[in-house]
Lab assay of single mutants.
Amino acid sequence: DRYEFNINGVHFTIDDAEEELIKLIEELLKRGARAEEIEEVIRRWER
């Protein structure tokens, strides 16, 4: 599934997002994580 979200006006799209990654990102968003922090999480996840 495609997952899309915005952080401070920056648009992100993840194709074939796994449910666990989506939950992790949503938790980070609730905590007010910065875009750079979430980008790093996504990079690590994709390795």
Rank of each mutant, 00 (worst) to 15 (best):
G9D: 11
W45D: 01
L28W: 03
K30E: 14
E36D: 11
A17Y: 07
N8W: 06
D15K: 11
R2G: 08
A35D: 05
L29R: 07
E26T: 07
A33Q: 03
A17Q: 09
N8D: 15
R2K: 14
E27H: 10
N8R: 03
E40L: 05
L21C: 01
E19T: 12
I42D: 00
R47V: 15
V41T: 10
R47N: 15
D15E: 15
D1P: 12
N6T: 14
G32L: 03
L29A: 08
V41W: 05
E27N: 10
I25W: 00
R31F: 11
E40Y: 04
K30N: 10
E36P: 09
L21Y: 01
L21M: 05
R2E: 06
I25K: 00
R47P: 15
V10K: 13
H11I: 12
I38E: 00
N8H: 11
L21D: 00
E18K: 08
D15Q: 11
G9K: 02
K23E: 09
I14P: 01
R43F: 06
E20Q: 09
L24E: 15
E37H: 07
L24Y: 07
Y3D: 02
A35G: 07
W45S: 01
D15F: 13
A33I: 05
E20V: 06
E46M: 07
R2F: 10
G32D: 09
Y3W: 11
N6S: 14
K23V: 13
G9T: 05
Y3C: 05
V10Y: 10
R47M: 15
E18D: 13
R47D: 15
E37W: 03
L24R: 07
A35T: 09
L28F: 05
V10H: 07
E19C: 15
E18W: 03
F5M: 06
E36C: 02
E19P: 15
E37V: 08
I14D: 01
L24N: 08
A35V: 14
I14Y: 03
R44L: 15
E39D: 09
G9R: 01
R47L: 15
R34H: 14
E40R: 03
F12L: 07
N8T: 06
E37F: 08
I7H: 08
D16S: 15
F12Y: 10
I38C: 08
Y3H: 07
G32S: 07
E27Y: 11
L24M: 12
R2N: 09
I38V: 13
I38N: 00
D16G: 14
F5A: 04
R34N: 15
V41K: 03
A35K: 13
D1G: 13
E39P: 00
E27C: 07
F12T: 03
G32T: 03
N6C: 11
W45E: 01
D15M: 13
R47Y: 15
E4Q: 07
I38M: 06
R43H: 14
R44K: 14
I14C: 02
E27A: 12
N8M: 08
D1K: 14
E46P: 04
L28P: 00
E37C: 02
E19V: 11
N8Q: 13
K30V: 11
R34L: 12
R31Y: 12
R47S: 15
R34C: 08
E26Q: 14
A35R: 13
E4D: 09
G32A: 06
W45A: 02
E26W: 09
